[in-house]
């Protein structure tokens, strides 16, 4: 009886997944398999009516792996993502710590939380154009300010400087997304059982201790989400580099997505190579994600046990405190 009941519950796992799977198969899986298939064919040019699998099916993959621009784009993408993500997650964590602290009630924190997410509301196109104008040469707000304050003796052409362009793109990404990351983290903190915090509080833990030893470990699942989605988003970065300066100067802001787009749409319609590059990217992202997953999971078991012990200890102590207080 009991066994049958459990089985009948498992059934709901399947049933509740049906809508997702159906939509996924139609709108996602089919186009993806189609793409993967194209990678092995001779599909290029606009008017191709017949598609043939190449005699050497991996020719496109080999071409892409030997393509200097593709390799450069991989390096650029990882570089720009890391320059943006590390400060972004740190700032988001600090803001989360400030805004969720029980001792340090920040006045107007509602306002700040709402405002910090706002760069994410505007379209990427607007932001890219805005920054392009900001760094205009020989006249532009940034140059004007730097020359007037004597930092520079004459206007600098930021947009032809490779490092400067990469930094600007990374900054735009950072600035557009730290609020988003912060909101996610805060929502994660709000989901933690308040009793744990109360226990820590009674225990006399200060803000830093509470954050490091209570909040962070409990945020682990949400942190994993942030890390994985940001990595996937970062490795697929497209809008800002394309709209800011088309991967220029000298391909310094060419990301892999932009490279893939250029293969398909910049004149030769190399759909097959674009598809092959997409699949290579897919494999790279998957490997990295699995790596992150394993890294976080290995710790999970160990940590969970530790935490359970700590929690038990804290609660015990908390009760002790309570008893003392009632005395």
């Amino acid at each position: 009886m009991k066994k049958r009941k459990r089985l009948s519950y498992a059934k709901y796992g399947y049933i509740f997944s049906i809508p997702f799977v159906t939509a996924f198969i139609i709108f996602s899986l089919y186009p993806t398999i189609y793409t993967a298939f194209i990678g092995f064919t001779d599909l290029k040019g606009l008017l191709k009516t017949s598609i043939n699998i190449l005699q050497d099916p991996f020719a496109n993959f080999r071409l892409i792996l030997n393509n200097a621009s593709f390799k450069l784009s991989l390096v650029n993408t990882l570089k720009i993502w890391m320059i943006n993500f590390i400060p972004q997650i740190l700032l988001a964590l600090i803001l989360t710590a400030w805004f969720t602290s029980n001792h340090n009630k920040i006045k107007g924190q509602g306002f700040f939380k709402v405002v910090f997410y706002m760069p994410n509301i505007i379209t990427a196109a607007t932001i890219a154009i805005l920054f392009n104008v900001l760094f205009g040469y020989p006249m532009g707000p940034v140059n004007d300010a730097l020359v007037k304050t004597g930092v520079l003796s004459q206007a600098y052409y930021f947009l032809t400087d490779k490092s400067a362009s990469q930094l600007i793109i990374a900054f735009i990404q950072f600035w557009m997304w730290y609020g988003y990351t912060m909101i996610i983290l805060i929502s994660g903190v709000l989901g933690i059982n308040p009793e744990i915090f109360e226990a820590a509080d009674i225990d006399g833990a200060n803000d830093v201790q509470t954050f490091l030893y209570i909040t962070l470990p409990n945020l682990r699942t949400i942190l994993l989400f942030v890390l994985i989605t940001s990595m996937i988003g970062g490795l697929n970065m497209f809008d800002i580099p394309k709209l800011f300066n088309l991967g220029m100067p000298g391909n310094a802001t060419l990301t892999t997505s932009l490279f893939i787009y250029n293969q398909a749409f910049s004149g030769s319609y190399l759909y097959n190579r674009a598809a092959a590059a997409s699949m290579i990217m897919f494999v790279i992202i998957a490997v990295l994600s699995i790596g992150v997953f394993l890294l976080m999971r290995d710790k999970k078991d160990v940590q969970e046990k530790k935490e359970a012990r700590k929690l038990a200890r804290q609660i015990r102590r908390g009760e002790l405190h309570k008893e003392e207080a009632t005395k």
Binding site: A10, N236, S278
Partner: peptide, 25 residues
């Protein structure tokens, strides 16, 4: 909420879907 046989595989698939570059698909 449910423990069913395919759930780990299913969840891995969801993650995989997320990783597909969007420009070409």
């Amino acid at each position: 909420a449910y423990s069913w046989k395919m759930r780990q595989a299913f969840f891995s698939m969801i993650l995989a879907v997320m990783m597909i570059p969007a420009q070409v698909t």
